[in-house]
Design a protein around this nucleic acid. Structure first.
Length: 446
RNA sequence: GGAGAGGUGGCAGAGUGGCCGAAUGCACCGCACUCGAAAUGCGGCAUGGGGGUGACUCCAUCGGGGGUUCGAAUCCCUCCCUCUCCGCCA
């Protein structure tokens, strides 16, 4: 959400940066035109209100002096304002709404050095601030080698028994899955494993948030008003609640309408939750297997920082997500999303793409985004600088970041495909074995 | 689900139609006192918006929205939220 004043003062920069985004968006002249009308009506309204307030005060004084004749005369004078003011107020409300609606559908401006592009094929591999392809290669697991043709996750022996799409369809339709037995346990183990890493090693506070959220929360994290069709809603009397598409929504909105102190920043929250997405618009894509489901588990990280701290926090958060894949020995790459692929609220996004040997390709398993003050403005989340000197122009907004650490369902896929054996069993990565009751392999006894 | 109470500035807490954008206390900031600190004294201290080069000035905001009134923190309606008791329930 943009500050119209900022657009007024930075019209060229705004238009230039916005034009890098995929899609058509309002130009600064159009927005400033609305704002001009808004300010004009405000000026007129203020004048009328000032007059009314002054006259009302005089009426009070006249009545106190028992001068009823004077009071009556003043009341007659103020009577005409009774028509002007409500009309002006209605007009102001309309133009405020118009401006708000126009601003609410504008995506965030990306950083200057975000790669230009039209779709995911223009994303650029990222090797870290000081990294290279070589430093990164030595730091990560390599692609596994197979003496047989690796299968896709749903064809791996153990998954054929523990992953049932037809049963799920009977109950809930397409894009759902029933996990059973060792596969279900593996899913659970992965979630616990990831959450423990972030809370015990990375300083995130574990949170169990509501999974049903209000429209205001969705507005704060940009799902509304533009992406309503991606959501599931639960009816509740007159109102409605949305099933969270990601824990980013409740975790980030923890600081909605809050005034934090600089000393308590950064705040770091992590949660393991189911996520619900309608996947409208992706009909026919990834229909086999559990890559793209209406419901999936995900560990989400959210950081709330000062403006000065957000860039470093972004790199740090990326490292937190990478740590999961490193510990699991999964091969992956990091992509710096181009302007055509980056999400609505982000100034920069790193995607972690894990190697899936069964598909012979990389697939997104985590997305780590820095949003600047974009969401903070929508949520009205500010902080009080510790300098304590009076801040000109109001309190500053916090910066928000979010990242998956990681998608549990997709990580399950990655483990199944990368650790599959020729006999259909799946080896359990060492780091995960404590979470599997010490098992070193599943599906081996069939 | 039934009955009741309540939402006021960073916090606590007064305020039932004009003298209230709001007492008082705490916290915070500045100054004085002090070698320094504490204590004490004095002063400052909500947010958003409009106009003005500026000193400044005006408007709005007492949970959100609407209404009554010349005038609303205060009266009415409605929504949201919190708390207490009863009922039901995991």
């Amino acid at each position: 959400m943009f500050d119209i004043k900022w657009i007024r003062n930075n019209a060229e920069a705004f238009d230039g940066a916005m034009s890098r985004r995929k899609g058509e968006f309002a130009r600064s002249v159009d927005l400033l035109n609305i704002d001009d009308r808004r300010r004009d009506i405000i000026t007129r309204l203020n004048d009328a209100q000032e007059k009314r307030n002054a006259l009302s005060k005089q009426i009070g004084q006249a009545k106190a002096q028992k001068d009823e004749a004077k009071a009556a005369a003043l009341m007659a004078e103020v009577a005409q304002l009774k028509e002007i003011i409500p009309a002006a107020e209605a007009e102001e409300r309309l133009v405020e709404e118009e401006l708000h609606a126009a601003l609410a559908v504008l995506p965030n401006l990306v950083f200057d050095d975000v790669p230009q592009g039209t779709d995911e094929s223009d994303n650029v591999e990222y090797f870290g601030r000081n990294g290279t392809a070589e430093t990164v290669a030595s730091d990560r697991a390599r692609k596994p080698e197979f003496s047989f043709a690796p299968r896709e996750h749903f064809d791996v022996g153990v998954a054929k028994r523990g992953m049932d799409f037809e049963e799920a369809a009977k109950i809930s339709g397409s894009r759902f899955v029933v996990l059973k037995g060792e596969v279900a346990r593996l899913e659970r183990a992965l979630g616990q494993f990831m959450l423990d890493i972030h809370t015990l090693e990375h300083g995130y506070t574990e949170v169990q948030p509501p999974l049903l959220v209000r429209d205001e929360a969705l507005f704060g994290t940009n799902q509304l008003p533009k992406f309503e069709e991606d959501l599931f809603f639960a009816g509740h009397g007159e109102g409605r609640l949305a099933l969270i598409p990601t824990a980013e929504v409740p975790l980030t909105n923890l600081v909605r309408d809050a005034i934090l102190t600089e000393g308590e920043l950064p705040l770091r929250f992590a949660a393991l939750t189911p996520c619900f997405r309608s996947e409208a618009g992706s009909a026919g894509r990834d229909t086999r297997g559990m890559l793209r489901q209406h419901q999936f588990n995900k560990v989400e990280m959210v950081s709330i920082t000062t403006p000065d701290g957000s860039l470093d926090e972004h790199e740090r958060m990326l490292g937190c997500a990478e740590a999961v894949l490193k510990k699991l020995g999964l091969h992956y790459r990091v992509m710096d999303l181009c302007t055509g692929d980056i999400g609505f609220g982000a100034k920069r996004t790193y995607d972690l793409e894990v190697w899936l040997p069964g598909q012979d390709t990389y697939r997104e398993i985590s997305s780590v985004s820095i949003c600047g003050d974009f969401q903070a403005r929508r949520m009205n989340a500010q902080y009080r600088p510790s300098g304590a000197e009076k801040v000109k122009g109001g309190l500053p907004f916090v910066h928000t970041l979010n990242g998956s650490g990681t998608a549990v369902g997709r990580c399950l896929i990655a483990v199944l495909e990368n650790y599959q054996q020729e006999d259909g069993s799946v080896a359990i990565p060492a780091a995960l074995q404590p979470y599997m009751g010490g098992l070193t392999s599943i599906g081996g006894d069939h």
